[in-house]
Design a protein around this nucleic acid. Structure first.
Lengths: 208, 208
DNA sequence: GGCCAGTTCAAACGATCGTTTGAGCATACG
DNA sequence: CGTATGCTCAAACGATCGTTTGAACTGGCC
């Protein structure tokens, strides 16, 4: 009967965990601080005390996941960038697999939906934040794509990367009709997703 | 100094037009009825009088555009479905071009963003409405894709269509970094978008 | 004119939002 | 012990939300 309450970790951590869940479920505006603090088992005023405002809480939710995600992406890319026998599949795997690994635990999977939602909401403040803090990641990957696809003009390459981004966002956020069957393990499903994504993206990027 | 006011058409039409703009700009929750009625130049109570509630207004905004869009998609598909020498490009064109034509006028382009936002918001009510009213359209296209791609298993085909959908939604809603240059006409830009989308989708759907 | 259905209007309603307040509690340090 | 610091709490603040109300206005019809 009592609302679900998370009782582990510090107040700040409980708020961040509950925020990730509720933002994914109801959006940034849709999730109220009263729902959030109630599900986190903390006082209403705790958000403003620890984070200053709801908007700064949103920023922290993003920062916590994206820092780890993009660090792993860049690490994976650094191992293969510029190497002679690197393939398109390798670069795409460096981009996709950290995101799918992140979605291994439940709250990480929810975060991918938060991220996709942020894209969809066209919030200029948030887009600027993403561009400022993580734009260099996309730029490094684009450079590597350009090296492996020298036959494509710059506009052509940008177009194709843009379309791949759409497919990735769509698949990773669980938008589509494809849902994990109950007889397929989470790990298997993730591996299938990665392979479909990479095969699809390679074809879309490199077609004549 | 006065807020922008639309003074043409009936009250209902003014509300629908203003709603499409504001929903695209600020989302369904973000756009308030006071902003909406003010920008439409009608009284605040007019929405509840003519539509019953804000939620029913949202439904009408969708219905008005989607009925026309999907009718044109099915008309285009009927001309080529089952025909022997029909290509994948033809089917994709029947799906994509009506959407791009719709986005010819400004409010139509805004509607594509409304649609993409609805997808992203994971609103179950809205998704059920879309599935109930327009699911048959996607089903007919899927049948035709299956005929033209007999080498693909059903799960494989569904995966690829899902990824194509993601790319289409992304491109048509203007999410991405690709923006129309000022020295490119609207018509030219739309044609380029269609060609990039179709080429990309053909490669993604039919790769070995 | 008198009446009536359709529409518009200003004003208010109750609910919910993010944020602030000030008292109360715990722990650590002199 | 006294007190300072970090944190939590219930309560309230003002603003804004979707919706409802009842009167005022509109045109056509007898």
């Amino acid at each position: 009967m009592t609302p679900p309450v998370n009782t582990s970790g510090s107040t700040k951590e409980r708020i961040l965990a509950a925020a990730e869940v509720l933002f994914a479920q109801r959006g940034f505006d849709g999730a109220s601080l009263r729902q959030l603090t109630s599900s986190a088992g903390v006082n209403l005023a705790a958000v403003n005390y620890h984070f200053g405002s709801k908007e700064k809480l949103v920023e922290q939710v993003f920062r916590r996941r994206l820092d780890a995600l993009n660090a792993r992406r860049l690490t994976a890319l650094a191992k293969i960038a510029g190497v002679e026998n690197t393939t398109l599949e390798d670069v795409l795997a460096a981009y996709i697999r950290p995101a799918l690994d992140l979605s291994h635990d439940d709250s990480g999977a929810l975060f991918m939906r938060v991220l996709a939602r942020a894209f969809a909401e066209h919030d200029d403040t948030l887009r600027q934040f993403l561009s400022e803090n993580y734009g260099h990641v996309m730029r490094q990957f684009t450079t590597e794509f350009a090296r492996l696809l020298p036959q494509l003009s710059k506009p052509e390459l940008y177009w194709r990367i843009d379309l791949v981004t759409g497919a990735l966002t769509h698949a990773m956020s669980g938008f589509g009709m494809i849902q994990r069957k109950s007889d397929v393990s989470e790990h298997t499903h993730r591996e299938q997703t990665a392979q479909h994504l990479i095969g699809f993206a390679v074809a879309g990027l490199s077609h004549p």
